[in-house]
Design a binder for these strands. Structure first.
Lengths: 117, 117
DNA sequence: CCGCATCCCTTTGGATACTG
DNA sequence: CAGTATCCAAAGGGATGCGG
């Protein structure tokens, strides 16, 4: 952590790998779509249903919500639990461990935003 | 900092504020455009010029690079230093303190991505 | 050497309407 | 209750070419 600023040598902050350039972009891409982290955060607060999220974010439309939930499931950030199969269905979403860890970092980002806004 | 969360519903992870929903989105929006963090990361490694960045990212075009640099300056994540005014100009970009702190969080994000990929 | 103007294609987000 | 289909407007990213 004591390395000096010199072009081409090691970097100033404790960024571990220069392959960061490639990798972190994928992460950023996956978490930055609109509503995604809000939805995830809401789910983190407890098991919620589709309708719960609709109420929580009135200006979020159905098909975007459905799309985001699908992405979050695909990313394994949430789990879709079918409580009752037949209509009227009952489905709840649960957060996963990896998402909990992600939210810690997201919170750091939030803190950074507050500090420097 | 009032929370919309019901009393007793404790937050599963240690997210401090529920206003996170609004705020962190702005941060994510500002850091997620393509190339932006790569450019910032490169600048963090030492003072660099426009041409340095062009070489570092061959598939990055001039106008996108110019746009990103402008955004980074506007965000006060980098400083534009005019070394020589008249053509041929000489300009270097320097990282700011707030960007250094940001990069630490970005690195955490990177680590998270590596861990769970 | 350091960029911007213009044009264009792709991706994203959303409105409206409909189904199991 | 829990979504999907279709269509559409807006923003993002890039190629080409030019100017200070």
């Amino acid at each position: 952590m004591s390395s000096q600023l010199k072009p081409g040598t090691s970097n100033a902050c404790n960024i571990t790998s220069l392959s960061l350039a490639c990798e972190v972009n994928d992460v950023l891409r996956s978490i930055s779509p609109r509503w995604k982290m809000q939805i995830l955060h809401k789910i983190a607060a407890g098991h919620v249903q589709f309708s719960t999220l609709k109420q929580a974010f009135p200006s979020l439309s159905d098909q975007i919500l459905g799309k985001r939930l699908g992405e979050l499931v695909a990313d394994e950030l949430i789990l879709k639990v079918v409580v009752k199969e037949k209509p009227p269905q009952h489905i709840v979403y649960e957060i996963t461990d990896r998402a909990m860890e992600l939210l810690k970092v997201i919170d750091d980002l939030h803190q950074w935003g507050l500090k420097w806004s």
